[in-house]
């Protein structure tokens, strides 16, 4: 086979593979711009019109926001932002302590931290519910934020990075009169911006994707977050498919808008930690 032809076949295969992967996403996006009764119309039997938003309408998005999805997005942003901000402080402090200080039982505690991020959330959901319930936090924002603040993977990311920072920096700062918190804030944090961004995005996305815990911790459903809110588009007898797809598009779009400009740091932070994302 001539090289040009071989290359053409290769590219054809790649394009076909790309279409297979992108198609569901594309179909979800364009379905959000169709009336609900037109979504499956061109699929069975399939016609190319299924891949084009025709008839085009923004009704789904109007309906989503009329049903209060804007408040749900705001709720989730609040919870995710609070978790990220508090989480960065707590996990950076923990990582700093593990990296710089020697104390009895350090390796055991670090081992528990590492194991904690390998546990599926379902395994701790019920004990966590009991604790939160005892604290009287059920149906309170604190129930969503506080348990997610300490994150084993984020602690480990910070620990890994801080351990690689030469000790000369902290010693030079100590000789200049800086206390440990000052050393963390003025020396270690500015050096670990990629790690901070990685850990921050990770905490944000964990919270953004949370479904089971918000469902358990907020039974009154007065304060809904995005994944729980999306589930409401589907009830026992009917499904507002176009609204569901519209909500899914918005849900995917917000973290993507955050992730894309910071992607370089995110990948750098995870790669630097020796952990694959």
């Amino acid at each position: 086979m001539p090289p040009v032809l071989r290359k053409a076949v290769l590219y054809l295969c790649l394009v076909a593979a790309a279409i297979i992967f992108v198609l569901p996403l594309w179909w979800a996006i364009l379905s959000s711009f169709r009336p609900n009764d037109a979504i499956f119309r061109d699929l069975f039997p399939f016609t190319p019109r299924a891949l084009w938003p025709e008839p085009f309408t923004l009704d789904a998005y109007v309906a989503i926001f009329e049903r209060g999805f804007g408040a749900i997005i705001a709720n989730t942003l609040l919870v995710a932002a609070l978790t990220t901000a508090l989480g960065l402080v707590v996990n950076a402090l923990a990582g700093f302590a593990f990296a710089l200080f020697d104390f009895p039982g350090k390796s055991t505690v670090l081992g528990i931290v590492v194991v904690s991020f390998m546990l599926p959330f379902e395994a701790i959901a019920m004990p966590l519910y009991t604790v939160v319930s005892q604290l009287g936090w059920i149906d309170h924002v604190a129930a969503l934020v506080v348990p997610s603040v300490a994150n084993g993977l984020a602690v480990f990311l910070f620990y890994q990075f801080f351990q690689q920072v030469p000790k000369d920096y902290s010693e030079a700062a100590r000789l200049e009169g800086a206390g440990w918190l000052r050393i963390l804030w003025s020396v270690y944090v500015p050096l670990s911006l990629p790690t901070c961004i990685s850990a921050g995005l990770m905490l944000f996305i964990f919270q953004w994707e949370a479904f089971l815990w918000p469902l358990l911790a907020m039974p009154a459903q007065q304060f809904k977050v995005i994944q729980v809110g999306m589930a409401a588009f589907q009830d026992q007898y009917t499904t507002a498919w176009n609204q569901l797809f519209g909500a899914a598009v918005i849900t995917a779009l917000i973290p993507m808008l955050l992730l894309i400009p910071l992607q370089r740091y995110y990948v750098q932070g995870l790669a630097g930690s020796g952990i694959k994302g």
């Binding site: 030469p166 000369d168 920096y169 010693e171 030079a172 700062a173 100590r174 000789l175 200049e176 009169g177 800086a178 003025s186 020396v187 500015p190 050096l191």
Partner: peptide
Amino acid sequence: DPAKRGVAMVFQSYALFPHMTVRQNMGFG
């Protein structure tokens, strides 16, 4: 405490804070 001994140290690695300018490094203490 090291900071209260009245000593200043120059490290083999220099230990200059990489994110600070020369002025900020010298003025850190």
